[in-house]
Design a binder for these strands. Structure first.
Length: 248
DNA sequence: GCGACAG
DNA sequence: ATCTTGTCGC
C-alpha cells in the first residue's frame, strides 16, 4: 500500500498537536463506498513497555476476507516508538511503525480496523482518523476501553449498542460484540460513518469479544516483538530469530 | 487545583 | 502496552 499523504513525525508535544490541528479538517465522515471485501486489522506490541520514546515496537497488519474471515495477507515491521505515551497523542507512538508495515502490503484493504480511537478523541483526531488521512483508505477505531464521553449501559445481547457523547457530539458507540462480554468502543476514523463502522466491527467479531482482525494482528505483532514467529494458527511462518535484530 | 487518561 | 499463577466457568 502506498500513502496518499505524508508528514514528518513530530518529536515534541507542541509539534504533535500542530500536526493534529492541520490534518483534522481533512477527515470525512461518509458511508463506506461499497461493502468491504477485504478488511484489515492493525496492532502494535512493545518489548517491555515503559511508555518511553525509545520503546522497541513491532507492528502487524493482517488482511482478511470479509466473508470468511480467513487471512489473505499479512505484513510486519519493527522499530522504535519515537514518542512517549501521552493520552491524546498516542498515535505518534504507533503510526510510524504501522505505516511501514502497511507499505509492505501488496493488497489494498477496503477498511482498516485500528486498535484505539477514531473520532472519540479530545480533538476529534484519534489514531484511526490520522491513519485514514495518511492512507486515503477508510478506517475505524475499535478500542477495548473508552478514552472519553458519556453513555448508558447497552443491552446484554450481542449487537446491543449505546451512543457515546462528548461535549454535545456523538463521537462513538459502545458495542456488545458477544452476549455477556464487556462492550468495545467503536468510532469512525475516515471515509466511513458510525453506522458502517459499527456494522463492520460486529460482523468481524463473530466468535470473540474483539474482531478477528485485531485478534490476529495482536498475535502476530506480539510474536514478532518477542522473536518468536514459529507456528501461526494458519501454519504460516513469520520471521524467526533474534527479537528486534540490530538493523532496525 | 485534582483526578482521568486509547495502547 | 507489559509484568504474571492460578482459578472460575462453559
Amino acid at each position: 500500500m502506498r500513502l496518499q499523504r505524508e508528514h514528518p513525525w513530530p518529536r515534541t508535544e507542541a509539534e504533535a498537536l500542530a500536526v493534529q490541528e492541520e490534518l483534522r479538517p481533512l477527515v470525512r465522515l461518509v458511508p463506506l463506498p461499497r461493502p468491504p471485501r477485504l478488511i484489515a486489522g492493525l496492532d502494535v506490541a512493545y518489548a517491555g513497555a515503559h511508555g518511553a520514546a525509545d520503546d522497541r515496537v513491532a507492528a502487524a497488519v493482517v488482511v482478511l476476507d470479509a466473508a470468511t474471515l480467513e487471512p489473505v495477507e499479512r505484513a510486519t515491521a519493527v522499530g522504535t516508538a519515537g514518542f512517549p505515551y501521552v493520552p491524546g497523542l498516542f498515535a505518534f507512538r504507533e503510526l510510524p511503525v504501522l505505516v511501514r508495515a502497511l507499505e509492505r502490503l501488496s493488497s489494498v484493504p477496503d477498511v482498516l480496523l485500528c486498535d484505539g480511537q477514531g473520532l472519540a478523541h479530545p480533538r476529534r483526531f484519534g489514531l484511526a482518523c490520522h491513519l485514514g488521512v495518511l492512507t486515503g483508505v477508510p478506517t475505524l477505531g475499535v478500542a477495548k476501553t473508552p478514552l472519553l464521553g458519556e453513555w448508558t449501559e447497552p443491552g446484554p445481547e450481542r449487537g446491543a449498542t449505546a451512543d457515546v457523547h462528548d461535549r454535545g457530539e456523538t463521537v462513538a458507540r459502545v458495542l456488545r460484540t458477544q452476549t455477556g462480554v464487556k462492550p468495545v468502543t467503536v468510532s469512525a476514523g475516515h471515509l466511513i460513518d458510525l453506522d458502517d463502522a459499527t456494522a463492520v466491527v460486529l460482523d468481524a467479531a463473530r466468535r470473540y469479544r474483539l474482531p478477528e482482525t485485531t485478534r490476529l494482528a495482536d498475535r502476530l505483532c506480539r510474536d514478532v516483538a518477542q522473536g518468536e514467529g514459529v507456528g501461526t494458527p494458519t501454519g504460516v511462518s513469520t520471521p524467526t530469530g533474534v527479537s528486534f535484530p540490530p538493523g532496525s
